Amino acid sequence: MTPQELQDQEQTLELINSELAARLARQSESGAKVDTKAVFLVGFAATAAQFLASRSFEPFSGAAAFVAYAVAVGFGISVFNLAAYEDLEPRATLAAYARSTKGAALGELAGTRVRFFERNDVLHQRKTKRWTVTMAAVAAGIFLSTVSLVLHTDGHGKRTEPREPTAPSSSATSAPAQSR
C-alpha cells in the first residue's frame, strides 16, 4: 500500500487491530480455562486413584482403572505444561513502530497479531485435545474403579433368606427322645 492508501485506511486498520487484540485476549482466556479444568481433573484422578488403592478391588479392572488415572494425570499435566501464548513485546513493538506512520504501524501490528493468533491457535488446539483425552481417561477410570469395587464385593453383605427346614436326621430325633 502507498502511504496515502494507508492513511485512507487508518480507521479500518484501527478497527481491525482492536478486534484482533480482543480476539487474542479471548484466546488467552480460553486457554486459561482449559488449564483450570485440567488441574481439576488431575486432582480428581489422583484422589480417585488413592481411594481405589485404599480399598480391596478386583485385580484386572482395578489395574485398568489405575492405568486410566495415570493417563489422565499425564495428559492433564501436559495441558498446562505447554509453552506460553505469544503476545506483543512492548519494547520491541515500540522500537519497531515508533517512527512509522499510523497507518503503517496499524498494518504491521495487525499482521503481527494474526501471526501470533495462528501460532497460539496451534497450542490451544493441542491443549484442548489433551484435555479431552484427560476427561475421557478420568471417566474410564471412574467406570473401571466402580466395576472393580462391585466385582470384588459381589456377594459380600447380601442378605440371605432362611432355608426351608430339612427332614430331621436320625441322630437329631434320638437326642430329644433320650432326654425324656
Rank of each mutant, 00 (worst) to 15 (best):
R119H: 14
V138F: 00
G111P: 04
T132V: 11
R130A: 12
T101A: 03
L123Y: 06
F117K: 08
F116A: 01
T132D: 15
L94F: 03
K129P: 02
T112K: 13
W131F: 15
A139N: 10
R115V: 10
G111Q: 08
L109D: 04
R119E: 07
V114A: 12
N120Q: 02
R113C: 03
T132F: 14
T93L: 02
F117C: 00
W131M: 14
G107Y: 01
G141L: 07
I142E: 10
G141F: 09
Y97G: 03
I142T: 12
V133M: 03
A140Q: 12
V150L: 15
V147R: 04
F143T: 05
T128L: 00
A140S: 01
T112I: 12
I142M: 04
A92T: 10
K129D: 11
F117V: 03
V147Y: 12
A98S: 11
A96R: 09
R115M: 14
L149W: 06
G107R: 01
V150W: 11
S148I: 13
K129I: 10
N120H: 06
K102Q: 05
G107V: 12
T93Q: 03
R130N: 14
V133W: 10
A136E: 09
L94Y: 09
V138L: 04
K127W: 05
D121I: 05
V150S: 06
T93A: 10
A139H: 01
T93V: 12
V114Y: 08
V133F: 10
V150Q: 07
Q125F: 04
W131A: 13
Y97W: 10
K102G: 00
A137R: 00
A137H: 01
R99G: 15
V138A: 00
A96Q: 04
N120V: 06
V150C: 00
V133L: 10
T112C: 14
I142N: 03
R119Y: 01
T146H: 06
F143I: 13
A104F: 15
V138M: 04
L144W: 06
S100H: 08
S148H: 02
G111A: 12
T134A: 09
L144R: 04
V138T: 04
R115C: 12
L123T: 11
R130M: 09
A140Y: 05
L144G: 02
G103V: 03
A105N: 13
A95P: 02
W131S: 12
F116T: 06
T132H: 14
A110P: 02
K127M: 03
T101S: 15
F117T: 06
A95K: 02
R126G: 01
A96E: 09
G107S: 09
E118N: 01
L106Q: 13
A110N: 07
A95R: 15
R126C: 11
T93P: 12
Y97E: 14
R115I: 11
F117R: 03
K127P: 05
F143W: 09
N120R: 02
V147C: 09
T101Q: 08
L123C: 07
Q125S: 05
Q125T: 10
T112Y: 11
V138C: 01
V133G: 11
Q125I: 12
Q125R: 07
V133T: 11
S100W: 05
T93Y: 14
A110Q: 02
T112M: 15
S100L: 08
